[in-house]
């Protein structure tokens, strides 16, 4: 019922240090992206791909620029749009998959299995309509220890939540571009990405250049209850109407009085 009263706005807002402000409200919950540009990720952490093969991150990265995302495969909200955003942008990227870059999606849920990973992989591969070798994009699962290693290394803060017996995670929407040596080259926030941004990031990462986050965007998904928050609009309406009335009176006065007669005119 609440949602019927609520207008949902999705806004992309330009902000540089967006995520530190995201967390100020509730100190007990720390969710967000704490950027660690240029630092290395643990290349020896091991994960299992959708085909049950266990490898280190170094092997998965395979000495190429790599696009990393952190999701979980039962996610009901942000992950699917984010992964769809990635398939969209990969279709437009104009780089050669597997030759120019790799993609890694790591589950933050230790209960995910290669089976759920494969299901997710198949779903998203249906939307890729360019020649795309399957080994380019790996959907990984791992144990809690390895998950903690990678999320801490990239500054990804999330929370596990159990509500009505359903386990889900509160987490930010972001993709991270890694250099061939496993250093963090750039963060791209949001769920939809410009191919321009991603291509620039991948090209820079391939040269081990770590630029600042251009167009650092924060996805604000907020509820706005128009009925209860009307004070400002009321004030605006009143002040605005007053202004218009005063200006209208001013105009009528000018039209009525007409040309000003001065003594000099009579000279």
């Amino acid at each position: 019922m609440f949602f019927q009263k609520v207008i949902l706005f999705l806004t992309l807002i330009y902000t540089l240090n967006a995520y530190d402000t995201n967390t100020t409200k509730q100190k007990d919950i720390e969710i967000g992206m704490y950027e660690k540009l240029g630092s290395s990720i643990p290349l020896d952490a091991t994960f299992t791909n959708a085909y049950g093969e266990k490898k280190t991150l170094k092997e998965f990265i395979n000495n190429k620029p790599t696009i990393l995302t952190l999701n979980y495969y039962n996610c009901l909200a942000l992950c699917s749009p984010l992964l769809s955003g990635i398939t969209d942008v990969l279709n437009k990227l104009q780089l050669k998959p597997y030759i120019d870059y790799n993609v890694l999606t790591i589950s933050i849920d230790p209960l995910d299995t290669p089976k759920t990973a494969l299901a997710k992989k198949n779903t998203h591969f249906q939307n890729i309509n360019i020649p795309f070798p399957p080994q380019t994009w790996s959907f990984l699962t791992g144990d809690q220890k390895n998950i903690d290693t990678i999320t801490n290394a990239v500054g990804f803060k999330y929370q596990k939540r159990v509500k009505d017996g359903v386990v889900d995670f509160l987490h930010p929407g972001v993709i991270i571009v890694l250099s061939p040596n496993g250093k963090i080259a750039r963060y791209l926030n949001g769920i939809r990405f410009l191919s321009f941004d991603l291509k620039l990031a991948v090209l820079e990462a391939s040269q081990e250049r770590f630029g600042p986050t251009i167009a650092n965007t924060l996805l604000y998904c907020f509820a706005y209850d128009a009925k209860s928050k009307t004070y400002l609009f009321q004030a605006e309406k009143i002040v605005g109407s007053l202004m218009l009335i005063i200006i209208a009176i001013f105009f009528i006065y000018l039209v009525k009085t007409g040309r000003k007669k001065t003594k000099r005119d009579e000279e």
């Binding site: 706005f9 806004t11 807002i13 409200k25 604000y220 907020f222 509820a223 706005y224 209850d225 209860s228 928050k229 400002l232």
Partner: peptide, 10 residues
């Protein structure tokens, strides 16, 4: 600020 009931679009 939407977290305080405001509206950035305003």
């Amino acid at each position: 600020d939407p977290s305080k009931g405001g509206d950035p679009l305003l």
